[in-house]
Design a protein around this nucleic acid. Structure first.
Length: 406
RNA sequence: CGGGGUGUGGUGUAAUGGUAGCACGCGUCCUUUGGGAGGAUGCAGUUCCAGUUCGAAUCUGGACACCCCGACCA
């Protein structure tokens, strides 16, 4: 991508009123644009990163034998009345049409998926089923805050699994738990498995918490074995697994998995015939990851005074090539060469922009490798390459670029 | 939803009752180019509605919006 043609621009000034680091850098870098509190447009740069996160999630869900579907955002009121949540779900957006019909904007999708299943599940032979989607969710948060960390409209992967027995469900729960570990490891986040309250519809839940001072949650983190317990339900002073001491830590919740009780299966009569021909309710589990929140959390964790430091797997591009005045032809050749090798390059081909500004933008955008071919380096048939995370550049031969950045 | 704060060109800001100014960005021209270049010139603004006043960005009331703290958060 040529930066001269990239939609969006960087800003030198910190946006007034934005205190959270992710909002400041993502807005300044032209990744996102705020429409209103908790509602953002993802600009081309930001969408690339969001897509990378979501594709990693997709890959891990597919590997766990889940199938992707796409459910509506507009939900029938009757379904929400059936579960009682039309009245009890406090952050539900309730909207009405010209003809005065009322609808819910989906904050979660049990009210769609359970009724859907009744059409496709009749026998134990139809189970198990694991369906997921990556969707825009709507929650009328009384207080949207902290950039992408708490929005009123946000991206979420939600997966629901259905099984003939709770033992089967519990086994799949462990599969998902492993899949979640993989997702967070691959996007570069250290997410700690944290025991939390299950709420109304589950006995327990497991949250994936990224320790960070700007998180909303407080967890008690075991200093020895890297598990935690949410302070909401903490009764012990020591780790239940290893007896280690617990330290109180702020954290960002990026995922949550929990077995579901039978409430929804009952509400929507999601049942099947077992081997004996007896009618049974399905056993279910629910598994969520806030993908846009993951993006915000990444910035909260990976930044310095100048800007973002994206982990390679989610960076919008792998290489940021700096065009050098007077060396346009050589830079252009490098751009073509890297692209032909399938390397994602953002090429700062802006002619009228001084080098200092290009460097400042490169630091802000946080692409892992900064590449530069100048008079100085070309004389030796070299390019300068600088990792975003390191202070000093290195000089490597032109032919060795590809191996270096892998 | 309770409390606090803030609303001035696209962005960041100054003007506290009397000419709305500056910087960045943007347009045009010229000179520049290894860490946010220089000159010339141009475009662009007081959140909205009432009120007080000869006169309101400034004072009063209300609305709306945004940020922060808290409550809430299947």
């Amino acid at each position: 991508m040529r930066q001269s043609q990239l939609f969006g621009r960087t800003k030198k000034e910190v946006p007034r009123d934005e205190e959270s680091i992710n909002a400041r850098f993502l807005i300044r870098g032209g990744f996102i644009h705020k429409e209103m509190a908790g509602v953002y447009t993802f600009l081309p740069l930001g969408l690339r990163t969001l897509n990378k996160i979501e594709n990693i999630v997709r890959d891990e869900m597919n590997k766990a034998n889940a199938q992707e579907v796409f459910m509506p955002s507009l939900h029938p009121k009757a379904n929400w009345q059936k579960t009682g949540r039309w009245d009890s779900f406090d952050v539900l957006f309730r909207i009405s049409s010209q003809s005065k019909s009322e609808y819910a904007l989906g904050p979660t999708h049990e009210e769609i998926l359970y009724p859907l299943l009744t059409h496709y599940i009749d026998s134990y032979k139809d189970l198990p089923v694991a369906l997921y989607q990556i969707q825009t969710k709507f929650r009328d948060e009384p207080r949207a805050k902290s950039g992408l960390l708490r929005g009123r409209e946000f991206r979420m992967k939600d997966l629901y699994s259905f099984h003939a027995t709770s033992q089967d469900r519990d086994a799949y729960y462990e599969v998902m738990r492993k899949a979640y570990e993989n997702v967070f490891q691959r996007v570069g986040l250290h997410a700690v498995e944290t025991k939390a309250s299950g709420g109304t519809f589950s006995d327990i839940s497991l949250e994936f918490q990224v320790p960070n001072q700007f998180g909303e949650d407080t967890i008690l983190l075991c200093t020895h074995c890297d598990i935690a317990i949410n302070i909401e339900i903490a009764k012990e002073n020591t780790c239940t697994r290893c007896g280690g001491s617990l330290s109180r830590t702020k954290a960002i919740e990026v995922g949550n998995i929990f077995p579901l009780k039978t409430k929804y299966a009952q509400d929507f009569h999601v049942s099947f015939k077992d081997k004996e021909g007896k009618e049974q309710l399905v056993a279910a589990g629910c598994y969520g990851i806030g993908t846009s929140r993951v993006m915000g959390a990444l910035v909260e964790v990976f930044h310095d005074g100048r800007g973002i430091l994206w982990p390679q797997a989610v960076a919008p591009f792998r290489v940021h090539l700096m065009g050098f005045p007077g060396k346009e032809k050589e830079s252009e050749a490098l751009y073509v060469q890297l692209q032909s090798k399938g390397i994602e390059v953002l090429y700062d081909d802006r002619q009228e922009v001084a080098m200092g500004e290009k460097f400042a933008d490169a630091d802000l955008l946080g692409i892992p490798y900064r590449l530069l071919a100048s008079e100085k380096t070309l004389q030796k048939n070299m390019v300068e390459i600088k990792k975003r995370a390191s202070q000093e550049p290195e000089f490597i031969p032109l032919q060795r670029i590809e191996e270096y950045i892998h």
